[in-house]
């Protein structure tokens, strides 16, 4: 059984199509990423799967339960970390966890064990009794992740888990997410508009744009679709040799080849392994190579390839989640 199955899920908001007939499946234990720019429909998808919104049409199952007819079972099976903070800042970290565990029906003894365990997982044991309003952005996120795990969900949703965090904290959160997925075998679905995040964390990525999924596969396979790495060689002087060109073009692993004044480039898989080979060939030919450049395609290239646009960070990295929450709430 898949952890998540989505069939033609659609959500309209007052005439605007936020999510348009998307379909995908997530295997149990998978770390699945929804990648796309702001407004692509990622958060709406998460909210639909978490039963916070009702779909306009289409169906979906989370942990085997129908999101329309078995809402309570779905809620019991999932943990969720929202894009905007959802903590009570007037309570301590421990109280936030405690109240959550009570809502999910854990006894006092069970709660103590669980809370200790999740606090340890996110390294917040020594800050647990501080009021959350004293926490930093990274600590709040970690607390939210801990809270999402208390009731041992089968599926954990992380909506932009590192939005607004600095690079160092982001790294740390990534490590927690990886650890969770590997040690606890939790199926994780995360949304992000950071390409390197999806690339680093996810086993499978669905690229969303304007409410539809435009590509879905393992990150490496998506990148391979672009034909592999680009190797560029710069020469010492203007040199043209038809024989050299023929020779390269006839190599079985070269997918494409181009020549400019004093440089040539080719696409191939595993580019780094082909560099010595080409250097040796060039030496035999008497070509003096000045520099070599290897470009590995990123998910950014994949996104560009499918949409013809770049993912822009529309929010700016400096905007914190709190500011964002403020801005969004006024706009509504």
């Amino acid at each position: 059984m898949e952890a998540i199955r989505v069939e033609d899920l659609t959500k309209h908001f007052e005439g605007i199509v936020a999510v348009n007939q998307i379909r995908f499946e997530v295997k149990q234990g998978e770390l699945f990423g929804l990648l796309g720019p702001n407004g692509a429909g990622k958060t709406t998808t998460i909210n639909l799967l978490a039963t916070l919104l009702k779909p306009t049409s289409g169906r979906a199952w989370v942990a085997g339960y129908d999101i329309l007819t078995e809402r309570n079972q779905v809620r019991r099976s999932i943990g969720i970390v929202f894009q905007d903070p959802a903590l009570d800042v007037k309570l301590t970290g421990r109280e936030n966890l405690e109240f959550h565990a009570m809502m999910y029906g854990y006894s006092k003894a069970e709660r103590q064990i669980k809370i200790k365990e999740v606090l340890k997982l996110v390294d917040l044991e020594d800050k647990a009794d501080l009021l959350v309003e004293k926490y930093s952005g990274g600590m709040k996120r970690r607390l939210e992740i801990a809270r999402g795990l208390i009731h041992e969900p089968k599926v954990l949703f992380l909506d932009e888990p590192t939005l607004g965090l600095d690079a160092q904290t982001r790294r740390k959160i990534w490590e927690y997410i990886k650890k969770l997925n590997q040690e606890k075998k939790v199926t994780i679905i995360l949304t992000t508009h950071y390409l390197e995040e999806a690339d680093y964390l996810c086993q499978k990525v669905a690229i969303m744009d304007r409410g539809v999924i435009i590509a879905m596969d393992e990150p490496q396979k998506l990148k391979d679709m672009l034909g592999g790495d680009i190797l560029s060689f710069e020469l010492e002087n203007n040199y043209y040799s038809g024989r050299w060109q023929e020779k390269l073009k006839n190599l079985p692993w070269v997918k494409s080849f181009s020549w400019e004044n004093n440089s040539f480039s080719l696409t191939t898989e595993l580019g780094e392994r082909r560099i010595p080979e080409i250097m040796e060939m060039a030496r035999q030919e008497g070509l003096a190579i000045k520099s070599v450049h290897l470009h590995k395609p990123s998910l950014e290239d994949v996104y560009l390839y499918f949409t013809g646009r770049k993912i822009r960070d529309e929010d700016g990295i400096l905007e914190t989640r709190n500011q964002r929450a403020k801005r969004l709430s006024w706009r509504r």
Binding site: A50, N72, I80, P85, L87, M103, A325
Partner: peptide, 16 residues
């Protein structure tokens, strides 16, 4: 609670 997001945390819990 709406403004600070806490309402969502309550709404997604398995209680009516």
């Amino acid at each position: 609670d709406k403004e600070f997001g806490f309402l969502k945390e309550i709404m997604v819990a398995p209680v009516n």
